[in-house]
């Protein structure tokens, strides 16, 4: 589904990704781990189409199509969803209005009929129920005054509503307490199926206790230095990144 080849990315003249190769198939869950500044979030945001990143080499193919020529909204309509590390507060725009507009943009692209307010609400309530979230969220302004946990839950709720082919979670576990982490993780687990690919970007292993990935990649200094099974994540949790960086020859601080 997603094929990244030798991807190089710069921001403000500084090279962050120095040749990433990554391939994810439908039904798979991949985790990207790595120390701070390794380029994890850059990869997530480049896939979503954030403008300030400059692709200087390589390619990103999504279902065989060049993703880099598509605007962010076109990528979303093709089925890419980014759960933000820092979800944006939008005062004055209710979550239901925001999400109904988003969903209908995507449905239109898929050749499906628009949902009216009634059908939208029914669907939203159904999703909220299965995610154990409070319906009141629908009437509140998007993320405004939300706690960190509420914001991340809202990201998962949006993901469930928009039903993407490729879901990217950017540090979705950061700033969550145990209960919120469980709700978020359960939500992601529910979305796991053979048609969907999920890319989990995280600094810590704890989210991966709930969402057990098929493959774990370690990103350091702008390169994937190791890939392995979920045990790799456990080892990183216990021993840190130091051994790996030595083993791979990427010296600490190689991100600079």
């Amino acid at each position: 589904m997603l094929n990244i080849k030798n991807l190089k990315v710069r921001i403000e003249g500084k090279e962050i990704l120095k040749g990433i190769d990554l391939s994810i198939e439908a039904g798979e869950v991949h985790a990207i781990m790595g120390p701070n500044g390794s380029g994890k979030s850059t990869l997530a945001n480049v896939l979503a189409g954030r403008a300030e990143y400059e692709i200087t080499g390589g390619e990103i193919l999504f279902e065989g199509k060049d993703l880099t020529v598509l605007a962010p909204e076109e990528r979303a309509r093709e089925g890419i969803f980014l759960a933000f590390q820092y979800p944006v507060e939008i005062p004055g725009v209710s979550t239901s209005y925001f999400l109904k507009t988003a969903l209908n943009s995507i449905r239109e692209h898929r050749g499906e009929v628009e949902l009216d307010a009634f059908d939208f609400l029914a669907l939203a309530k159904e999703k909220m129920k299965s995610l154990h979230m409070d319906e009141a969220l629908l009437h509140r302004s998007v993320n405004e005054g939300f706690s960190g946990g509420e914001k991340k839950k809202n990201e998962v709720f949006q993901m469930a509503m928009l039903d993407p082919k490729l879901a990217i979670l950017d540090e979705t576990d950061s700033g969550l307490d145990i209960d919120a982490l469980r709700i978020v993780a359960d939500g992601v687990q529910q979305l796991r199926d053979e048609k969907r690919a999920i890319l989990v970007v995280t600094h810590y292993q704890r989210l991966l206790d709930h969402i057990v990935p098929d493959v774990v990649h370690v990103l350091s200094g702008g390169r994937i230095v190791k890939s392995g099974d979920p045990d790799l994540a456990k080892k990183l949790e216990k021993e840190g990144y130091g051994w790996l960086l030595e083993e791979s020859g990427a010296v600490a601080g190689g991100g600079n």
């Binding site: 954030r50 605007a71 962010p72 909204e73 979303a76 969803f81 980014l82 944006v88 507009t101 949006q158």
Partner: peptide
């Protein structure tokens, strides 16, 4: 940042 958030959900700029 807000505009990007909207667009990342499929909404036209």
């Amino acid at each position: 940042e807000a505009l990007f958030y909207f667009r990342s959900r499929g909404i036209d700029p």
